[in-house]
């Protein structure tokens, strides 16, 4: 089991003061992937998607994958599960409410237990930011982050990237990527940025391929400091102006209870930030409209837009299976246990 190894350091710097060792097949943050790795994952996704099902079944035949879900999920869980099954792997689902987690078992012990039961890879969804790092340190297994708190949802960002590339590059979507692949592409992410792990993964990933990311939302859901999360990120509070610059628009789910807690007026929110047919026709008639789901129709997005010709929402879901197949193959075929 790889262990946190102390490393003496005398000065504080931007690097973590303790170096942790994670399995090279892990995906905890989009920053774990070099551009080359991203290209590799995209290519593998395309290969696997069209591969003969029987041949594909042999890829991870009888390998053991655990899905550890502390939060509810439809898309992510199902697509990870489908991805694993299409590769021939055995999956076990452990969810917080029907396991010893309810009895107070820690994440560390849950991970150790799953490993003892033969898990070779754990897919984790957890309400706390950074939980996959805890699980990785505890088990040394490849961990796939399926969403941790407000931190990241890297597989979602990758499937979003695949979706964007299919529209920007068409057939070349599966090719290698560089820092100019998305040059000239502006992606607006609109809504509850503060609470969104999807937003964080996308705003960290897309600028690395040359995209401009514009964040849009009211200050209660989008603090100014979000623009400092990485390069290539700007804030535009006026949704119409953000739309006018954008080739891609990602809408995020709005949770009414959060708005209530923040004293935000829902009608006001819809007026300023809802993606509706008139607004899209007026300001972004050609843009690709995306949403990671679940959608609250009539709130952040109207049905006309969600089901309209510009919508890529169903494509995103389909891409989820391909990307997650690639991530599972990467997780279970990565060699050795070296430092990232």
């Amino acid at each position: 089991m790889p262990k946190t190894k102390p490393k003496p350091r005398k000065t504080p710097s931007s690097s973590p003061q303790q170096t942790s060792f994670h399995h090279p097949g892990s995906l905890l943050s989009v920053n774990d992937l070099a551009l080359e790795d991203i290209g590799h994952v995209l290519k593998l996704a395309s290969v696997l998607e069209t591969e003969d099902p029987l041949k594909r079944m042999k890829r991870l035949f009888k390998r053991r994958v655990s899905l550890l879900f502390y939060e509810s999920s439809t898309r992510t869980r199902t697509s990870f599960e489908l991805a694993a099954k299409q590769l021939g792997a055995d999956t076990v689902l452990v969810s917080a409410l029907s396991s010893s987690i309810e009895k107070g078992e820690s994440l560390k012990d849950t991970g150790i237990t799953l490993r003892a039961l033969g898990a070779e890879c754990i897919i984790l969804r957890h309400p706390n930011s950074g939980a996959p790092y805890v699980l990785s340190r505890a088990t040394g297994l490849p961990i796939l982050n399926a969403g941790d708190g407000m931190h990241e949802h890297p597989s979602q960002a990758l499937l979003d990237l695949r979706t964007i590339l299919q529209h920007v590059r068409g057939a070349k979507a599966a090719g290698p990527v560089s820092e100019t692949t998305l040059k000239g592409v502006t992606v607006t992410i609109c809504g509850d940025i503060f609470h969104s792990r999807v937003a964080r993964s996308n705003m960290l990933l897309l600028p690395r391929l040359g995209a401009r990311v514009v964040l849009c939302g009211p200050s209660a859901l989008l603090p100014e400091t979000a623009a400092d999360a990485g390069p290539g990120i700007t804030i535009e509070r006026n949704f119409d102006q953000a739309l006018q610059q954008s080739q891609v628009v990602m809408m995020l789910r709005i949770q009414a209870e959060r708005l209530a807690g923040l004293n935000l007026d829902l009608d006001e929110y819809k007026l300023r930030y809802q993606a509706n047919a008139e607004r899209i026709a007026a300001h972004a008639s050609k843009a690709l409209i995306m949403h990671p789901g679940p959608i609250i129709r009539g709130l952040e997005m109207t049905s006309e837009v969600a089901d309209g010709p510009q919508s890529a929402i169903a494509e995103q879901v389909r891409n989820g299976v391909a990307i997650r197949m690639a991530l599972l193959v990467r997780a279970l075929t990565a060699k050795g246990k070296t430092s990232r």
């Binding site: 930011s129 950074g130 708190g149 407000m150 931190h151 792990r197 964080r200 400091t225 400092d228 999360a229």
Partner: peptide, 8 residues
Amino acid sequence: ALAFRLGL
């Protein structure tokens, strides 16, 4: 910015 980035 760091807290934002880490989702904390």
